[in-house]
């Protein structure tokens, strides 16, 4: 297993799969408010454990509730996605209006610092496991906002991204393709950004605090 490289945070291959880290508590310093999920299935023998995990992951992949939070201009692509032309509900992807009931967070384009604050808060209120789909070039390298004083350029410094969909703007088809990738990854237990986030929370926090200078988000949030 490759070691996690802070310089290449987007490289999620350095991460363990969903099943592997459950044998041990995360070694990364985790604030006491932060918590990891179930450890019930680790006591089972590995074979069964794997089978169970496969089933679980299939359920997870087949019912992805998208948090209805249009963070950037790409949110305009989400409307056609849910209407009759593209109909994302046939993949079991409905919208969820509250972070408590959603699994996927679509960062739909540029992310100003002000929005980033809200996004982080929403992300942390979602139950585990949860995934981030980054939509458009802005999330990858700032896109056309490469010299904006108030727009972040690399999303994965602040949030773990599971799937990038490039383009400006990507068409709904591209987004659907991104979802397919995500579903595949989830099914294989490879979409583990949320776990990565928990393990490296300190590193993420540091990055977040560098842009969010008035860190007035109360700590009780997480």
């Amino acid at each position: 297993m490759k070691k996690f490289d802070p310089d290449r945070p987007w490289d999620l291959t350095t991460l363990p799969t969903t099943m592997a880290p459950q044998g041990s508590r995360p070694h990364a310093p985790v604030e006491d408010q932060c918590f990891l999920g179930a450890e019930a299935d680790i006591k089972q023998p590995p074979k069964l454990q794997e089978a169970v995990a496969t089933i679980k992951n299939w359920f997870r992949a087949s019912s992805l509730n998208v948090l209805a939070f249009g963070t950037g201009c790409g949110a305009i692509e989400l409307r056609p996605l849910s209407t009759s032309r593209f109909d994302m509900s046939r993949f079991g992807i409905p919208g969820a209006p509250t972070p408590r009931q959603s699994n996927v967070f679509i960062i739909s384009g540029y992310l100003s610092v002000k929005t980033l604050t809200r996004v982080i808060r929403c992300y942390e209120q979602m139950p585990d496991p949860k995934w981030v789909v980054a939509l458009g070039s802005c999330t990858i390298n700032g896109g056309m906002y490469w010299d904006s004083y108030n727009t972040i350029k690399v999303l994965d410094l602040y949030l773990p991204v599971d799937v990038y969909v490039s383009g400006c703007m990507p068409r709904p088809e591209a987004l659907i393709a991104g979802f397919q990738y995500l579903m595949d990854d989830v099914k294989k237990g490879k979409a583990n950004g949320w776990h990565h986030y928990l393990e490296n929370l300190e590193w993420y926090r540091e990055n977040q605090k560098q842009v969010i200078t008035d860190w007035d988000l109360p700590n009780y949030n997480w």
Binding site: L36, G37, F59, S62, R90
Partner: peptide, 21 residues
């Protein structure tokens, strides 16, 4: 639209039961 499969409620139910926290 096409709509989700008939058994989508079961999948939703299953997913809800395997959330981790």
């Amino acid at each position: 639209r096409f709509g989700p499969p008939l058994w989508q409620p079961y999948i939703d139910m299953g997913k809800l039961l395997v959330q981790r926290n």
